[in-house]
């Protein structure tokens, strides 16, 4: 069980790096979507017996992270009719190297933090921290609004991964509320992207610079 889980978490970490290395927006969106779907499967592996709430959480996560949000992002991409190049502030190789360094750092951090025996051999904690940091890098090292949204999505994915540590202890009410809230957050971001496009005819956040000292 834990072998399969670690494999999937490793794959998810790989998709963070794929997103960092992609030069085209559709492939960044795809990487984030695949990562979201992998995360959706994880709760099923984590639970020994099939509880309907866990299944519902898994289906909800896969639908939202894997299909709804990516299709919203693609729609924004089409509506904006923008150039699909990513335009990094920080080059692909440096961001990839940073992402790799973050992954190593996360693994190192996870060995420092004490873990419960059942989590000791799992990649959940390093995977979560690595995904959060990669999301951060994507968020700040890219100029286009859509890639920033993808970065935010990966940040969320990392946090979700960490939340799996607590899936048995926190009431599912909180879990469901969290899922809903994060979804709406990205939804609203999508709408704003749409608005920004209408106002500026571009999704380049470097143009958002009239408010400054």
């Amino acid at each position: 069980m834990s072998g399969a889980m670690n494999l999937l978490i490793g794959l998810a970490m790989g998709f963070s790096l794929v997103a960092l290395a992609s030069s085209r927006l559709p492939s960044v969106i795809r990487a984030a979507a695949f990562q979201g779907m992998i995360l959706g499967v994880l709760p099923l592996l984590l639970e020994a017996k099939f509880h309907w709430l866990v299944v519902a959480v898994a289906i909800g996560t896969i639908t939202v992270k894997g299909f709804v949000i990516p299709s919203l992002l693609r729609r924004a991409l089409r509506a904006a009719n923008i150039d699909r190049e990513v335009e990094p502030l920080l080059g692909f190789v440096p961001s990839l190297l940073l992402g790799a360094a973050a992954t190593v750092g996360a693994a190192a951090l996870a060995t420092v933090l004490p873990l419960r025996p059942e989590h000791a051999r799992s990649l959940l904690v390093p995977g979560a921290f690595a995904t959060v940091v990669c999301g951060f890098i994507l968020l700040i090292a890219r100029t286009k609004a859509i890639s920033q949204v993808c970065g935010y999505l990966m940040l969320e994915n990392g946090i979700y991964l960490f939340g799996l540590l607590l899936i048995n202890s926190t009431p599912l009410l909180v879990e469901a509320g969290i899922l809903l809230d994060l979804t709406v957050a990205v939804f609203v971001i999508g709408i704003i992207v749409d608005r920004i496009q209408r106002e500026f005819d571009t999704l380049d956040t470097r143009k958002l610079n009239s408010l400054r000292e």
């Binding site: 968020l139 609004a145 971001i189 704003i192």
Partner: peptide, 16 residues
């Protein structure tokens, strides 16, 4: 346009 910019930054920074 300035209100859009302010909302975008608010959501991105506040959301993070």
């Amino acid at each position: 346009a300035r209100a859009f910019e302010a909302s975008w930054k608010y959501l991105l920074v506040g959301g993070t």
